[in-house]
């Protein structure tokens, strides 16, 4: 409408599903907190471009809002690769608590602003486990010889390899057919994402290895944010705060449970694993990383661990 400020929210996830439900509610929070002055326009499915394009748009101020994985910041600043480390958190809830802690927020703020963005909210995306076509996985040896699709990231790939599988690079969009035809044997992701992409139709063994817990921040363009009135800025921050609480306490826990139920109903065999064995197997990846880490990476890692252990 006339006189309102439009905020384009450009994301890669599809127009339906848990994340989209979240996005629509985020728009409501923003409208409510700004008394209708700011209107969020939701652009799902990379309609306005992929993650990199969204980041670049935010830096230029042509895209106002986006959301992506915390590790995606490492395109700009290698410090964020810390978030890729395996078994950094016990649960998604714990990760959210730490990332919204005041000390951690203060530390991250300057780093994010240097990338031309500002974090207004955090979303739990659960933990990533391995779904495969062959058999249930209980210990690292069960993963031997399984080609598991992995994102292009040396820590993530190193972890999958250390867990016993062969990390295989492949575009996410090709995974369904690749699983069906045996090009790869497994994928790793959280239950709602696996379900949203129909992976339960082609792979039947989900082992709750929970190697990665990487939450998604909701970010806004720094240039755009700075151009808002003081009142609107406060409204955006308050909306982000309300959203973080609602998303993590109400939306996600239900979605995660529902997704797991739906997977089981679709005939997926879900099994718990002894995570300690896997933690031990991937310890060298963490040790390697820390031994060659930069000052920033070390500082960030130590801060996260300190806040985590104090809770």
């Amino acid at each position: 409408a006339e006189g309102t400020i439009a905020a384009k929210y450009s994301v890669v996830f599809p127009a339906t599903g848990t994340q989209a439900d979240g996005a629509n509610k985020l728009g409501e929070f923003i409208k409510e907190e700004s008394d209708g002055r700011i209107e969020m326009e939701f652009y799902p499915s990379s309609q306005l471009g992929d993650k990199i394009a969204a980041m670049e748009g935010m830096i230029q101020g042509t895209i106002e809002m986006s959301e992506f994985s915390a590790t995606d910041f490492s395109n700009y600043d290698s410090m964020w690769s810390v978030c890729s480390l395996p078994y950094l958190w016990d649960s998604g809830e714990q990760a959210i608590e730490v990332f919204t802690d005041t000390e951690v927020t203060a530390f991250m703020e300057e780093k994010v602003e240097k990338c031309g963005m500002k974090i207004i909210a955090w979303q739990n995306l659960g933990s990533r486990s391995i779904l495969n076509t062959k058999h249930a996985v209980n210990e690292p040896a069960d993963l031997n010889g399984l080609k598991v699709r992995c994102m292009q990231d040396s820590i993530l790939a190193g972890t999958i390899n250390a867990m016993g599988a062969s990390a295989t690079p492949l575009a996410w969009g090709e995974c369904y057919t690749a699983l069906q035809q045996g090009t790869i044997d497994g994928v790793e992701n959280s239950e709602p994402v696996l379900l949203a992409n129909g992976m339960q139709e082609v792979a039947k063994y989900l082992s709750l290895t929970e190697q990665f817990i990487i939450p998604d921040p909701v970010v806004v363009s720094k240039v755009w944010f700075d151009g808002l009135s003081e009142e609107d800025q406060q409204a955006m921050l308050k909306a982000g705060e309300d959203y973080t609480k609602w998303y993590n306490e109400e939306l996600w826990p239900n979605a995660e449970q529902e997704a797991q139920d739906a997977l089981i109903e679709a005939g997926v065999e879900v099994n718990e694993v002894d995570k300690e064995v896997f933690k031990e197997a991937v310890q060298p990846v963490i040790d390697d990383y820390l031994s060659s880490a930069t000052e920033d990476q070390k500082a960030f890692y130590e801060l996260l661990v300190k806040v985590r252990d104090n809770q």
């Binding site: 599809p14 127009a15 339906t16 499915s45 369904y176 129909g198 139709e201």
Partner: peptide
């Protein structure tokens, strides 16, 4: 078909 199925969240198979 994969694009459609993922966009509206229906069964690819």
């Amino acid at each position: 078909m994969v694009v459609f199925a993922v966009t509206v969240n229906c069964s690819i198979g």
